[in-house]
């Protein structure tokens, strides 16, 4: 008897996503917020200087001040948790679809591998093409174009990851060098597609050290999110598998 595995996977995705979002949110609240506050003060100085030079009428109205900075600090953690929950749901559905033949098998190594793939597809690759910028960078007039480019980068990351996996799985009977070269070639094509996307059109008038630190913390938050996600998702899967006698034998990889 096989009860459907989708709903337990969804539950695990939600728990793991919530925990991962909270971890990434608190990490960036502690480490990235001081940088963002500094970037905003620098931006205010820049626009004050512009105001002085061009007259008040032409001043750049950047932040509407709908919320105080401390509310936006809280908003960062809320945004991270909501994003974690949503990514957890999408992760679980993709995981269930890819592993539909034997969804309960080897939950720990699969969770690690799938999370690493998700990190590459939605975090690292789009992040390399369009690196995160601190507040003060970003023209309101180009935001629609930049969102389209960013979504295209995420789509190329996700589709590219599935394509690479397909090539790897389909060529399982071929000699290893053939298989590996085909995978490498596919990866190069995906990377080329990613970098053929147009550049971010906006200038980045930010101190180089602050910019580097901010981008490192951005990637670090992404990495922490997926690491916590992998550990919780895999751990919950392992616990469920060990409780089910039929699946327990398949909980860890066995090579007969």
């Amino acid at each position: 008897m096989h009860s459907s595995p989708v709903l337990p996977l969804l539950g695990r995705g939600l728990v793991a996503g919530g925990a991962a979002g909270l971890a990434a949110g608190l990490f960036s609240l502690l480490l990235a917020e001081p940088l963002m506050d500094r970037a905003i003060r620098a931006e205010e100085k820049r626009s004050a200087a512009e105001e002085h030079a061009h007259g008040a009428a032409q001043a750049v109205q950047h932040h509407e001040e709908l919320f105080s900075r401390s509310t936006q600090h809280g908003g960062l953690v809320v945004a991270a948790v909501v994003a974690g929950l949503a990514l957890g749901v999408l992760f679980a559905v993709a995981y269930a679809a890819v592993h539909r033949r034997d969804p309960a098998a080897t939950p720990w190594p699969r969770a690690l591998a799938f999370s690493a793939a998700a990190f590459l597809a939605v975090s690292l690759l789009p992040g390399l093409r369009y690196p995160a910028n601190p507040p003060g960078v970003g023209d309101a007039g180009t935001v629609g174009d930049r969102q389209a480019l960013w979504l295209a980068a995420v789509a190329i990351g996700v589709l590219g990851m599935f394509l690479v996996r397909q090539v790897y799985v389909r060529l399982s009977t071929r000699p290893e060098p053939v298989r590996h070269l085909a995978v490498a070639l596919t990866a190069v094509v995906v990377l080329a597609a990613l970098f053929l996307l147009p550049d971010n059109p906006d200038p980045v008038p930010v101190d180089a050290t602050l910019l580097w630190d901010f981008r490192m913390l951005s990637l670090g938050s992404h990495a922490l999110l997926w690491a916590v996600f992998a550990a919780v998702f895999g751990g919950l899967g392992l616990r469920a598998a060990l409780r089910t006698p039929a699946a327990a034998g398949r909980a860890t990889p066995v090579h007969p």
Binding site: S28, M36, Q72
Partner: peptide, 10 residues
């Protein structure tokens, strides 16, 4: 505006 910092960070 509420998710502003989260957008920049991610």
């Amino acid at each position: 505006e509420f998710a502003h910092d989260g957008r920049h960070l991610f």
